[in-house]
Amino acid sequence: MKASTIAALNHAMATRQPVAFAKNLTDGAEFLLPDPAAPETLNQAGRLALAADKTGTHMLGNESWFIEARNPSPRLILVGAVHIAQALAPLAATSGFEVILVDPRQGFGNQERFPGATMINEWPDEALDTLKPDIRTAVVTLTHDPKLDDPALDRALQSEAFYIGALGSRKTHASRLERLSVLGHQPESLARIRGPVGLDIAAVTTPEIALSIIAEIVAVRRGGSLGSRTK
Protein backbone atom coordinates (compact mmCIF):
# COMPACT_ATOMS: atom_id res chain seq x y z
CA MET A 1 0.00 0.00 0.00
CA LYS A 2 1.25 3.46 -0.82
CA ALA A 3 1.34 6.33 1.67
CA SER A 4 -0.18 8.50 -1.08
CA THR A 5 -3.18 6.11 -1.21
CA ILE A 6 -3.73 6.53 2.54
CA ALA A 7 -3.63 10.33 2.09
CA ALA A 8 -6.19 10.07 -0.74
CA LEU A 9 -8.43 7.80 1.40
CA ASN A 10 -8.30 10.31 4.24
CA HIS A 11 -9.13 13.14 1.87
CA ALA A 12 -12.14 11.21 0.54
CA MET A 13 -13.31 10.55 4.09
CA ALA A 14 -12.95 14.20 5.11
CA THR A 15 -14.93 15.37 2.07
CA ARG A 16 -17.54 12.57 2.40
CA GLN A 17 -16.72 11.13 -1.04
CA PRO A 18 -17.57 7.44 -1.45
CA VAL A 19 -14.51 5.58 -2.77
CA ALA A 20 -13.53 1.95 -3.20
CA PHE A 21 -9.99 0.82 -2.46
CA ALA A 22 -8.93 -1.94 -4.85
CA LYS A 23 -5.87 -4.16 -4.43
CA ASN A 24 -4.63 -6.79 -6.83
CA LEU A 25 -3.75 -9.71 -4.54
CA THR A 26 -1.36 -11.18 -7.09
CA ASP A 27 0.80 -8.29 -8.25
CA GLY A 28 0.01 -5.71 -5.54
CA ALA A 29 -1.34 -3.03 -7.92
CA GLU A 30 -3.79 -0.66 -6.24
CA PHE A 31 -6.43 1.88 -7.24
CA LEU A 32 -8.80 4.26 -5.56
CA LEU A 33 -12.03 3.85 -7.53
CA PRO A 34 -13.55 5.43 -9.49
CA ASP A 35 -10.37 5.96 -11.47
CA PRO A 36 -10.34 6.55 -15.24
CA ALA A 37 -6.95 4.80 -15.34
CA ALA A 38 -8.45 1.56 -13.91
CA PRO A 39 -9.99 -1.12 -16.16
CA GLU A 40 -13.74 -0.65 -16.62
CA THR A 41 -14.50 -4.06 -15.05
CA LEU A 42 -12.69 -2.89 -11.91
CA ASN A 43 -14.54 0.44 -11.82
CA GLN A 44 -17.81 -1.48 -12.20
CA ALA A 45 -16.88 -3.80 -9.32
CA GLY A 46 -16.07 -0.71 -7.23
CA ARG A 47 -19.49 0.82 -7.97
CA LEU A 48 -21.24 -2.42 -6.97
CA ALA A 49 -19.20 -2.69 -3.75
CA LEU A 50 -20.12 0.87 -2.78
CA ALA A 51 -23.80 0.36 -3.61
CA ALA A 52 -23.90 -2.78 -1.45
CA ASP A 53 -21.51 -1.26 1.14
CA LYS A 54 -19.62 -4.58 1.04
CA THR A 55 -15.91 -5.28 1.35
CA GLY A 56 -14.39 -8.52 0.07
CA THR A 57 -12.42 -10.38 -2.59
CA HIS A 58 -13.57 -10.70 -6.20
CA MET A 59 -12.31 -12.66 -9.19
CA LEU A 60 -12.12 -10.36 -12.21
CA GLY A 61 -11.04 -12.38 -15.23
CA ASN A 62 -8.29 -14.53 -13.73
CA GLU A 63 -7.16 -11.89 -11.23
CA SER A 64 -8.05 -11.80 -7.56
CA TRP A 65 -8.94 -8.29 -6.29
CA PHE A 66 -9.66 -7.11 -2.76
CA ILE A 67 -12.25 -4.36 -3.02
CA GLU A 68 -13.05 -2.28 0.05
CA ALA A 69 -16.15 -0.06 0.08
CA ARG A 70 -15.42 3.16 1.92
CA ASN A 71 -18.68 5.02 2.10
CA PRO A 72 -18.94 8.21 4.15
CA SER A 73 -19.65 7.62 7.83
CA PRO A 74 -23.31 7.40 8.80
CA ARG A 75 -24.49 10.60 10.48
CA LEU A 76 -26.36 10.99 13.73
CA ILE A 77 -28.20 14.26 14.23
CA LEU A 78 -29.00 14.88 17.88
CA VAL A 79 -31.62 17.52 18.54
CA GLY A 80 -31.06 18.91 22.01
CA ALA A 81 -27.62 19.41 23.55
CA VAL A 82 -28.96 18.04 26.82
CA HIS A 83 -27.40 15.83 29.49
CA ILE A 84 -28.10 12.57 27.65
CA ALA A 85 -26.49 13.99 24.51
CA GLN A 86 -23.28 14.36 26.51
CA ALA A 87 -23.26 10.58 26.96
CA LEU A 88 -24.71 9.71 23.55
CA ALA A 89 -22.46 11.88 21.36
CA PRO A 90 -19.12 10.29 22.32
CA LEU A 91 -20.61 6.78 22.29
CA ALA A 92 -21.98 7.36 18.77
CA ALA A 93 -18.66 8.80 17.59
CA THR A 94 -16.82 5.73 18.90
CA SER A 95 -19.36 3.58 17.06
CA GLY A 96 -18.40 5.23 13.76
CA PHE A 97 -21.07 7.92 13.45
CA GLU A 98 -20.42 11.50 12.50
CA VAL A 99 -22.34 13.31 15.23
CA ILE A 100 -24.04 16.66 14.66
CA LEU A 101 -25.71 18.44 17.57
CA VAL A 102 -28.55 20.88 17.01
CA ASP A 103 -29.73 23.25 19.72
CA PRO A 104 -30.65 26.92 19.32
CA ARG A 105 -30.14 27.44 23.06
CA GLN A 106 -26.50 28.40 23.42
CA GLY A 107 -26.66 27.77 27.15
CA PHE A 108 -27.00 24.07 26.24
CA GLY A 109 -25.27 23.89 22.89
CA ASN A 110 -21.81 25.23 23.50
CA GLN A 111 -18.23 24.05 23.21
CA GLU A 112 -17.77 24.02 26.98
CA ARG A 113 -20.41 21.31 27.37
CA PHE A 114 -19.46 19.56 24.12
CA PRO A 115 -15.75 20.08 23.46
CA GLY A 116 -14.87 19.62 19.81
CA ALA A 117 -18.45 18.73 18.78
CA THR A 118 -20.11 19.82 15.57
CA MET A 119 -22.76 22.14 16.98
CA ILE A 120 -25.46 24.00 15.07
CA ASN A 121 -27.17 26.73 17.12
CA GLU A 122 -30.25 27.00 14.90
CA TRP A 123 -33.89 25.99 15.13
CA PRO A 124 -34.12 22.27 14.35
CA ASP A 125 -36.32 22.70 11.25
CA GLU A 126 -33.85 25.17 9.73
CA ALA A 127 -30.89 22.99 10.68
CA LEU A 128 -32.49 19.86 9.18
CA ASP A 129 -33.37 21.74 6.00
CA THR A 130 -29.66 22.44 5.64
CA LEU A 131 -28.42 19.01 6.75
CA LYS A 132 -30.87 17.12 4.51
CA PRO A 133 -30.97 13.71 6.29
CA ASP A 134 -30.33 10.92 3.77
CA ILE A 135 -30.54 7.12 3.99
CA ARG A 136 -27.27 7.11 5.95
CA THR A 137 -28.57 9.55 8.59
CA ALA A 138 -30.26 8.93 11.95
CA VAL A 139 -32.17 11.68 13.76
CA VAL A 140 -32.90 11.57 17.50
CA THR A 141 -34.77 14.25 19.43
CA LEU A 142 -33.82 14.62 23.07
CA THR A 143 -35.21 17.94 24.33
CA HIS A 144 -38.65 16.87 25.69
CA ASP A 145 -39.71 20.32 24.46
CA PRO A 146 -42.33 20.24 21.68
CA LYS A 147 -41.12 23.63 20.41
CA LEU A 148 -37.81 21.99 19.53
CA ASP A 149 -38.63 18.29 19.06
CA ASP A 150 -41.73 18.70 16.88
CA PRO A 151 -40.17 20.77 14.07
CA ALA A 152 -37.22 18.35 14.02
CA LEU A 153 -39.49 15.31 13.76
CA ASP A 154 -41.63 17.04 11.14
CA ARG A 155 -38.56 17.52 8.93
CA ALA A 156 -37.11 14.09 9.73
CA LEU A 157 -40.37 12.44 8.62
CA GLN A 158 -40.11 14.27 5.29
CA SER A 159 -36.57 12.91 4.84
CA GLU A 160 -35.09 9.50 4.01
CA ALA A 161 -33.46 9.16 7.45
CA PHE A 162 -33.01 5.43 8.21
CA TYR A 163 -33.79 5.97 11.88
CA ILE A 164 -35.93 8.51 13.69
CA GLY A 165 -36.13 8.38 17.47
CA ALA A 166 -37.77 10.58 20.08
CA LEU A 167 -36.86 10.52 23.76
CA GLY A 168 -39.86 10.58 26.08
CA SER A 169 -42.38 8.39 27.86
CA ARG A 170 -45.23 6.50 26.18
CA LYS A 171 -47.60 9.23 27.36
CA THR A 172 -45.59 12.12 25.92
CA HIS A 173 -45.06 10.11 22.76
CA ALA A 174 -48.81 9.67 22.27
CA SER A 175 -49.42 13.41 22.56
CA ARG A 176 -46.44 14.03 20.29
CA LEU A 177 -47.97 11.80 17.61
CA GLU A 178 -51.25 13.70 17.92
CA ARG A 179 -49.53 17.04 17.37
CA LEU A 180 -47.60 15.69 14.37
CA SER A 181 -50.75 14.27 12.81
CA VAL A 182 -52.28 17.75 13.01
CA LEU A 183 -49.31 18.86 10.90
CA GLY A 184 -50.50 16.38 8.26
CA HIS A 185 -48.39 13.30 8.97
CA GLN A 186 -50.17 10.02 8.29
CA PRO A 187 -50.12 7.07 10.75
CA GLU A 188 -47.81 4.96 8.54
CA SER A 189 -45.36 7.84 8.41
CA LEU A 190 -45.59 8.43 12.17
CA ALA A 191 -44.84 4.74 12.72
CA ARG A 192 -41.27 5.48 11.58
CA ILE A 193 -40.65 7.30 14.85
CA ARG A 194 -39.17 5.07 17.54
CA GLY A 195 -40.67 6.32 20.77
CA PRO A 196 -39.94 5.68 23.53
CA VAL A 197 -36.52 5.60 21.90
CA GLY A 198 -34.01 2.80 22.40
CA LEU A 199 -33.81 -0.94 22.95
CA ASP A 200 -35.43 -2.35 26.06
CA ILE A 201 -32.36 -3.12 28.13
CA ALA A 202 -34.00 -1.76 31.28
CA ALA A 203 -31.65 1.25 31.15
CA VAL A 204 -31.67 3.47 34.23
CA THR A 205 -28.62 5.74 34.17
CA THR A 206 -27.82 8.30 31.48
CA PRO A 207 -25.00 6.25 29.92
CA GLU A 208 -27.28 3.18 29.91
CA ILE A 209 -30.00 5.11 28.10
CA ALA A 210 -27.41 6.34 25.60
CA LEU A 211 -26.31 2.74 25.09
CA SER A 212 -29.90 1.57 24.49
CA ILE A 213 -30.35 4.29 21.85
CA ILE A 214 -27.10 3.58 20.01
CA ALA A 215 -27.82 -0.17 20.21
CA GLU A 216 -31.19 0.36 18.52
CA ILE A 217 -29.67 2.58 15.82
CA VAL A 218 -27.00 -0.04 15.08
CA ALA A 219 -29.61 -2.82 15.01
CA VAL A 220 -31.79 -0.90 12.55
CA ARG A 221 -28.80 0.01 10.38
CA ARG A 222 -27.46 -3.56 10.28
CA GLY A 223 -30.83 -5.29 10.10
CA GLY A 224 -30.46 -6.88 13.53
CA SER A 225 -33.23 -8.94 15.07
CA LEU A 226 -33.43 -6.78 18.24
CA GLY A 227 -33.59 -9.95 20.31
CA SER A 228 -31.21 -11.79 22.59
CA ARG A 229 -28.75 -14.11 20.84
CA THR A 230 -29.17 -16.76 23.56
CA LYS A 231 -32.23 -18.78 22.77
Binding site: M1, L9, N10, T55, A69, S73, T94, G96
Partner: peptide
Protein backbone atom coordinates in the same frame (compact mmCIF):
# COMPACT_ATOMS: atom_id res chain seq x y z
CA UNK B 1 -16.02 1.32 7.32
CA UNK B 2 -15.19 3.17 10.45
CA UNK B 3 -13.37 1.71 13.37
CA UNK B 4 -12.29 2.70 16.84
CA UNK B 5 -8.82 3.25 15.55
CA UNK B 6 -7.76 4.67 12.21
CA UNK B 7 -5.05 2.08 11.56
CA UNK B 8 -4.03 3.46 8.17
Amino acid sequence: MTDVEDVL
